[in-house]
Structures are given as C-alpha cells and as structure tokens.
Amino acid sequence: MTSQVLAPQPTRPAPDSPAAVRTTGLTKRFRGGQVAVDDLDLVVPRGSVTGFLGPNGSGKTTTIRMLLGLVVPTSGTVELLGEPVPRSSASVLPRVGALVEGPAFHPYLSGRANLMRLDAADRTVDRHTSGARIDAALDRVGLGSAAGKRFRTYSLGMKQRLGLAGAMLRPRELYVLDEPTNGLDPQGTREVRTLVRELAADGCTVLVSSHLLAEIEQVCDRVVVMRAGRMVTAGTLDDLALVARPSVVVETSAPAAALAVLRRLGATTASVDDDGLRVRADLPDVPVEDVTRALVLADVPVRGIGRSGRSLEELFVELTGEGFDVAG
C-alpha cells in the first residue's frame, strides 16, 4: 500500500452524535394492501451492534430496503447517520455498507470484476486505490484465491462472502447486513461473527438481521425483535436476559412435597415435568442455596437442583409467536 496514510476512520462517535439509524412511524403498505412494516420507530445507537430479529416475513428486509432508499415508505421518515433518506442518499449511502436480501452479482463476471463494477459506480472513491481496496476486501472475506472465478461457479457461502466484500470496499461508518450468515457453514458463520466484532471494535455501527437468534446473539449488544411488521421489543441483551427469568429445577422422587415447598417460597408458576421426576418453579429472587435449605428442612429428597435459565431463544419464540428456524 502506498503513501496515503490517513487517520483511521471512522472514529468513535461523540456521545451526543445522532443515532446511526432512526426511523419514525415507518410504514410500508404495498399495492394490494399488504402492510409489510407498520409504524416502526427503530433506533440504532452509534457504535452498537444491533441484532434485527424476527421470523421470515416479519418486515426486516422491507425495513432495510427503506433504510437504503430502495423502497419508498408509505409514511414515516428514515434518518441514517443523521441525514434523511432518500433525500440525502447521495451523501450518506457511501458511508453505509449494505448486504440486502442475499448477494447479487453478474453471474458471468468474476468475483473481482463484479467488485470492480461496484467500485466504478462509486463517485466518491479514488479510482487509483481501486485495485488495492478490492484485494483487501477479498482477502478479508477469504476469497483472495477465488477472485478470478466466475460468480456463477461460486458456492452459496462464497457468494455471501463476495457480498460482504462488496460492503467493505471502503471503510464505512454503518453496516447494514441482511442475513449475512445465510448459507454459510458453521466455520463461515464464525468468521462472519469475527468480522462483525472487528467492525464494531473499529467504531462502526452494525445492524445485522437474522431469523436465527443463535447466529448473532454472541455479537450483538442490542436487539430489535420484529413480528408481523411491528416491533415487539427492543433493548440491550442484558435487559432481555432479565426478562427471560430463570427458573429453579429440582430433581426429586417426591414432586408433590417439592411443589408445596416451592409455592411456599413464593413461586407463582410451579409444575412437575412429564417424567414426574423434575419440578420447575419460577423463583427469580430466591437464591438456589435458600431453596435447597428449605427443601431439605422439609424432608424433601433432593437428587439435584439448579437454575435453568429460560434461554433467550425461548423468549423470542414467545415474543414472535413462531419458532426460529433452527435448521438454517
């Protein structure tokens, strides 16, 4: 790389800088009356990695298309990095890297040639650094050796990587990644997570959508959950972990006695599992040690005891009313 050493960018935003993404009352009603997105107030704080979750068809992709100016909202407004979209698209979108509903490239061109075309379309970059930036992006997603092959010969995972490379042709302040792990094997999924962590460590904001909570749970600090075009919940993962209240599970040969003790301790919901050997109770505020002591004092035979956190996954299934596709 040559002499152009500039201060690394983007830098961490000032605390009072506007949100990376802000929508107010965002609504899209398609012809035919189908409401894809309904009155969405979405806020993605700068520097956050926000997971955009919801089952397929919950309005995530339509929202992302409106963020990027591809679809005109029926009503409501969009601001990216403090600027209105689509009015300021020309100045704001170069600062946004996007992957929208899967990668799409010219099948008969090589991966590199496809990236060259995208770079040629960007009026705000220096064409003299084009080759170096394309190489850097290809290396970063591990496509360096396949860069000369035609796109049509790529596997789904390679296509996805090329899409990510396209989003990283230049440093961005915000990345909007729609299902970036779709089609990737577990190794590829890990790599994408590492990539997202690197981007975040660099001070970039990332909005990453998925219908698979498990794939992005580890990299997100915030989540927004969609269901049928509406936002169901939004907040930090810690907030949600509190909502997902853990329960106490007691293994015992005397479930009825155990139930009585747990109820006495204040459990609002307590039940015996189907096998008749485990009792489950909702006791978020009582330490397990105290539960154990109470059971022993009441002469309940305890084979085992522990906390079983209701997983976030279960919470999301409950929130969205549909199971997340775990087959992915």
Partner: peptide, 9 residues
C-alpha cells in the same frame, strides 16, 4: 488498520 487507511482521498 491497513484496510481502513485505504480511505478515499
């Protein structure tokens, strides 16, 4: 860091 330095100029 190197990639970021390739900022357009």
């Amino acid at each position: 860091a190197e990639q970021v330095r390739l900022e357009p100029l």
